[in-house]
Simulated assay, not measured.
Amino acid sequence: MLIRPATRDDAAAIWSIIGPTIRAGETYTLDRDLSEGDALAYWFSADKEVFVAADVDGVVLGTYYLRANQAGRGAHVCNAGYMTGAAAMGRGVARAMGLHSVDHAKARGFRAMQFNFVVSTNERAVALWQSLGFDIVGCLPGAFDHPAEGFVDALVMYRAL
């Protein structure tokens, strides 16, 4: 697997991953009806570095972004968002992107990484982040309106780098 910076040439592949995730409405707070153009504009916004994980044939399996979590005096803590294509689930793509993002964040000089809103019902993600050294440092009770589960908690997760 190769993890590399994304280019605009990756937009269709990225949309094929983030589109279904956004439409499902189970893990991101984004509007489920977000257009392709608006979703890609969000993912590729100027404050983010975007990466893709591709197999040996160049097929994009997942994508993530990295950015400062806050401006100014909080800019030493980064934030990231990850999405994996359905066909790639269970193949270690998210773990590889997580490890890559931690290493890249360290290389960029960030001192910590914080996830502001991990939906508690996304148990695979919570377990993955914990296995990579992230702690749950906060819980936002009923902060996420899950399409099947109703109002569920959102977790704040943090790791020093």
Rank of each mutant, 00 (worst) to 15 (best):
M1T: 09
P5M: 10
P5W: 00
P5I: 03
A6I: 06
R8C: 02
R8A: 14
A12V: 03
A12W: 01
A12T: 09
A13S: 15
A13Q: 11
I14F: 04
W15G: 00
S16W: 01
I18C: 04
I18M: 07
G19A: 11
P20V: 07
I22M: 03
I22E: 00
R23G: 02
A24I: 04
A24D: 14
A24Y: 00
G25L: 06
T29Y: 11
L30D: 08
D31W: 02
D31P: 07
D31H: 10
S35H: 03
G37L: 05
D38F: 01
A39C: 08
L40N: 09
L40R: 09
F44W: 11
F44S: 08
A46K: 13
A46L: 09
D47M: 06
K48I: 02
K48Y: 10
K48V: 03
K48W: 00
V50G: 03
D55K: 12
D55N: 15
D57G: 14
D57T: 11
G58P: 08
G62H: 08
T63V: 15
Y64I: 02
Y65G: 06
Y65N: 13
N69D: 15
Q70G: 08
G72K: 06
G74Q: 07
H76R: 10
H76M: 01
V77N: 03
N79L: 01
N79F: 05
N79H: 12
A80R: 03
G81E: 11
Y82V: 12
Y82F: 15
M83P: 00
T84Y: 03
A87L: 04
A88E: 11
A88D: 11
M89H: 15
R91H: 09
G92H: 07
G92M: 04
V93A: 02
V93T: 12
V93E: 05
V93Q: 01
R95C: 07
G98E: 08
G98R: 01
G98D: 05
L99G: 15
S101A: 13
S101Q: 04
V102E: 14
D103Q: 14
D103I: 02
H104P: 00
K106D: 01
K106Y: 00
A107R: 13
R108I: 01
G109Y: 07
G109A: 10
G109P: 08
F110G: 06
R111P: 00
M113A: 15
F115E: 02
N116G: 10
N116D: 13
V118R: 09
V119A: 06
T121Y: 07
N122M: 02
E123W: 00
A125W: 07
V126K: 04
W129G: 10
Q130W: 05
Q130M: 15
L132M: 15
G133W: 10
I136Y: 10
V137G: 07
G138N: 12
G138M: 08
C139M: 11
F144V: 13
D145Y: 01
H146P: 09
P147V: 13
G150F: 11
D153P: 06
D153V: 07
D153H: 09
L155K: 03
L155P: 00
L155S: 01
L155E: 01
M157Q: 05
R159T: 06
A160P: 08
